[in-house]
Design a protein around this nucleic acid. Sequence first.
DNA 1: AAAAATAAAAATGTATACATTTTTATAATC
DNA 2: GATTATAAAAATGTATACATTTTTATTTTT
Lengths: 207, 207
Amino acid sequence: MTELLDQLKADILNGQLARGCPLRQQELSERYGVSRIPVRDAIAVLKNQGWLVAHGKAGVMVPELNWCEAEDLYQMRTLLECQLLDYAIPNITYEVLGKARDINKQLNSPTLSLVERGQLNWDLHATLYQVANRPTLFNVVAILNEQVRRYMGFQYGPLNYRDISQNEHEQLLNFLTDGNANEALALLKRHIDEAGKKLVAYLKATS
Amino acid sequence: MTELLDQLKADILNGQLARGCPLRQQELSERYGVSRIPVRDAIAVLKNQGWLVAHGKAGVMVPELNWCEAEDLYQMRTLLECQLLDYAIPNITYEVLGKARDINKQLNSPTLSLVERGQLNWDLHATLYQVANRPTLFNVVAILNEQVRRYMGFQYGPLNYRDISQNEHEQLLNFLTDGNANEALALLKRHIDEAGKKLVAYLKATS
DNA sequence: AAAAATAAAAATGTATACATTTTTATAATC
DNA sequence: GATTATAAAAATGTATACATTTTTATTTTT
């Protein structure tokens, strides 16, 4: 069932499942070649995590993008991820930093798809956060980051955010290497805040 | 199915479903007089919201109480609820404050059950937060508050937190009535922080 | 006697079938 | 003509039945 879940998420991200139009269980079960039961299971999870919302009293739909939700998601990320990084910092080894740098290098490639880029971006953050040893906090942050990916088409398209983001990653890793915790935390805050503000401004302007 | 969900939550809160021992779908379906399908649906939701955790590869269980989770939940509450109240403050009318005061009065009653008390406590906070008009943020805060209720047996038992909490509610409402936003926010932060710290200290001491 | 392998039991995952609810299209009324 | 009633269609919710996976108990092997 995890495969179906990932498939659905991917199809939401790449637009195969259009925003705003209702999805029927049977339609989905035919589309993915399974019965309605696993579809129902997957829908329940995706509804809980904000990937889908109710459409009237019957059916669900992919929610429209919406600046208020984006703003909330980014504000929550800022608040929670700074806390999480703070927990992590004492446990960040050079090995961890090396892993993060490897991922940031991969983000250089211009041929990455949107989905791949989003995944790598999270992998980098998660590499640092993992050593915080805070499963409950980590889990919420992970869900928020998955949610945010629905908006990434804007960031890496019209907003051309790629290079800025990558530079900030590098700076962050340098601060952490130097043991400069406060600067690192401040930068992470800016990193998320700025991304959020640009996204919200863009969403407000286009809607 | 919402009824089954609420029933399961209630039975987790009041200890009818013991922490740590595995729950089987069939067992639950017999217990509640429904087939396994609605049980599966409910389990999926409860797993997502932290009411249940996986037990090996088959089955699920009520998670043990755990200071680290409690600390995370309270820290998240502090960070997110202060933000949410900040959004709400400009929209808090005397009517809203009146509703909140009515709820706080109900909290006076010494005959309330644990479940009722927990519900009223959240109702009070939710009354204020609702007017923030921030559905995404509100939703996460609501789930965190539901989670926290699993720990309330400690707060209102050994920790005797009832009176303190009620006084702080009253103070908070007074600050809001006086338009003293900064004091209100600072108090809310303390209100949640302190409750969390006491709970965590207690959990650490007893485990 | 401890560990590994095997077989039986029991659990979850999924498909099909049916009941109930919701939606949509049609007809009737004001 | 717009609004409300009504009936057909289609969707979701649930039960039962079966397949697959996981667990547990037993047996075998070292």
